[in-house]
């Protein structure tokens, strides 16, 4: 038993050490990639985000006439169809067809010649090759569709992930500061009908945090005065389904991607980001986190259902 324990403990420690190493490597790689990609992607997103948000607003202006779950269902189904059509034109349908035919043929061979060892091995090899080919043919359209899909999903996210603050409801505003912002930094939140400040900014840990309550319903612009500079942040108070921008971020492409509704903050100022901790939308269909699952189920379902109609193979 002692030996088993020793093996279990040291084996697990070795695995954990290796996993830690892999994690550090991955973090290093992504960090390096981010440094390279950010100067390119941040300005691109700064251009794309306002366009996408305008389109998103227009689409949801129509969907707002329906119950939220129905709107999400229709939108997901339509996006499934759009993806299906796009897939047809972006992918090599003939090659996909051939790979799928090969898969079928080799599966049949496995069934028919299960007593023939040589044929069985051959069929398995061919099957594997056909599956790999199929993956490769699918990868290209997936990569092509990834960017528009992400932009669409982030537009959906700013509507389904968070809900507006209810009047009287309490939350926090977090302002993350640049390392060279100076200590102490003075930031004043200007009075605004949309917000009741319960506790003024408490500094520490590289950020300032306010505790607020929702004021009058509406889409408000909060103004923060710091060192002669005015920084704005949108605040939404209300009880209905609306677009909510949880954070306004600096020139950082990942932040901009997930928070597309507001202009990016200037990179040279003392503020890196301003976040309002909005509550999540409470629904098992269209609410926080669940909407993504529901979207994939409906869009994939629609695509699979209409595959024969559009004569798409995947």
């Amino acid at each position: 038993m002692e030996a088993v324990n020793w093996l279990l403990i040291n084996g697990a420690n070795a695995v954990l050490w290796l996993w830690g190493l892999v994690k550090s490597l991955l973090v290093g790689i992504f960090s390096a990639l981010d440094t390279v990609l950010n100067p390119v992607l941040s300005p691109v997103l700064a251009l794309l985000n306002p366009i996408c948000t305008t389109i998103g607003d227009a689409v949801y202006a129509v969907l707002d006439l329906l119950p939220v779950w129905l709107g999400l269902t229709i939108l997901s189904a339509l996006m499934g169809i759009v993806m299906l059509v796009a897939f047809r034109y972006v992918s090599n349908q003939a090659a996909i067809g051939r790979a799928k035919d090969d898969i079928k043929a080799n599966l049949l061979a496995l069934k028919l010649y299960k007593d023939e060892l040589r044929v069985t091995f051959q069929a398995q090899g061919r099957l594997l090759w056909a599956v790999l080919r199929l993956q490769r043919y699918i990868l290209t359209p997936v990569l092509v569709m990834l960017v528009p899909m992400l932009l669409c999903l982030t537009q959906m996210g700013i509507r389904h992930q968070w809900r507006p603050l209810h009047p009287g409801e309490q939350t926090l505003i977090r302002m993350r500061l640049a390392q060279d912002a100076g200590n102490p930094i003075q930031v004043q939140l200007e009075p605004n009908a949309g917000v009741v400040t319960e506790v003024g900014a408490v500094p520490g840990g590289g950020e300032l945090v306010w505790r607020i309550r929702g004021g009058e319903p509406g889409r408000h612009t909060l103004r923060f005065n710091t060192a002669g500079q005015v920084i704005e942040k949108e605040l939404v108070v209300g009880t209905d389904f609306q677009r909510v921008s949880a954070a306004r971020v600096g020139p950082n492409w990942t932040g901009q991607l997930f928070h597309p509704a507001e202009r990016r903050l200037p990179g040279s100022g003392p503020v890196r980001s301003i976040e309002i901790v909005y509550p999540g939308v409470d629904s098992w269909i269209y609410g926080a986190n669940w909407w993504v699952l529901y979207f994939f189920v409906i869009s994939m379902g629609a695509a699979l259902l209409l595959k024969p109609l559009f004569r798409v193979r995947f």
């Binding site: 926090l172 408490v202 500094p203 840990g205």
Partner: peptide, 24 residues
């Protein structure tokens, strides 16, 4: 948990496990 005390105001912030509590 970490307590950040306001240098002059009677307020403080408590942070732990990704949670923040701001109190007077």
């Amino acid at each position: 948990f970490i307590i950040y005390r306001h240098p002059s105001e009677p307020t403080a912030r408590i942070e732990f496990q990704d949670q923040t509590v701001v109190l007077k």
